[in-house]
Amino acid sequence: MFRSPGDRLLLGSLRCVSVLAGAVVLLIVVFLLIESWPALRSVGPMRFLTDPSWHPAASDGGGGRFNLIPMLIGTLASTLGAVMLATPVGIASALFCRFYAPRRIATGYRRLLELLTGTPSVVFGLWGLQVLAPLICQWRPPGQSLLAGVLILTMMILPTVALLSESSLNSVPRAYLRGAAALGLSRWAAIRSVVLPAARGGIITAVLLATGRAIGETMAVLMVAGNVVRVPQSVFDPVRTLTANIALELGYAMDIHRSALFVSGLVLMVILTALIGVTEWIGGDRLDA
């Protein structure tokens, strides 16, 4: 294909690298399947949904119980809550940066958001554990709750939504804006009826990427959400997410218990795959258009 040896070298190494990257994901799935097989075989997939509770290491009365539903609800509730808070705030801050803020303030604000993206989750977690949870506790004990988890997650995914939305606002052609101005539209009317529809695909992708991060987040949520395996009745009740469950118990689990934790990893993988599918389906065609 290429004459020059340099190009051939480049192509060869790029192929190797992409095969490696793809293989890693496949290997993870294969590994998860192998590790969770003992639990899937001896416990059966249905019991992960119908067992009375999550007590995987119980030795009395017929061994462990493996209900993942409360943790599945914990993961979905905290993610959904965070996305519902972060989306409007993130888009608003992107609009502010792009259309309303003076250039200097916009640049400073963007740097701050970038700093927030790079902050390790343990830092958010420690802050939540020492400041946020006690604050909520003064209001509605015990403080470590679904609400605390949602707020921490919101802070973590907000910069992702804001920065990615802003870059998709930036990619709206200037001519659209000039056209809107020529029609005599106000700035807000132009944003609402021209810019936002044009940037919609990118903004949806931003939200879905942030959702992925919220689902996968472990440490910060583990530190503030209370980790009780129970379906929450209100936002002030503690929840345990699937990822927190793996982090809390994997180091101490053996045999079927360990294998059951890999099943919850598999469930997470399925959720993420579904999310990526949705991203492709909604965001993909608009981005190509």
Partner: peptide, 26 residues
Amino acid sequence: NNEDIHAGIVIGDNQQGILTVAGDPN
């Protein structure tokens, strides 16, 4: 029995336990 315990918060390590109790008077 662990199943009979009505926990309000479940923690992983000692440090998290201490910070949790230090942050909640009850």
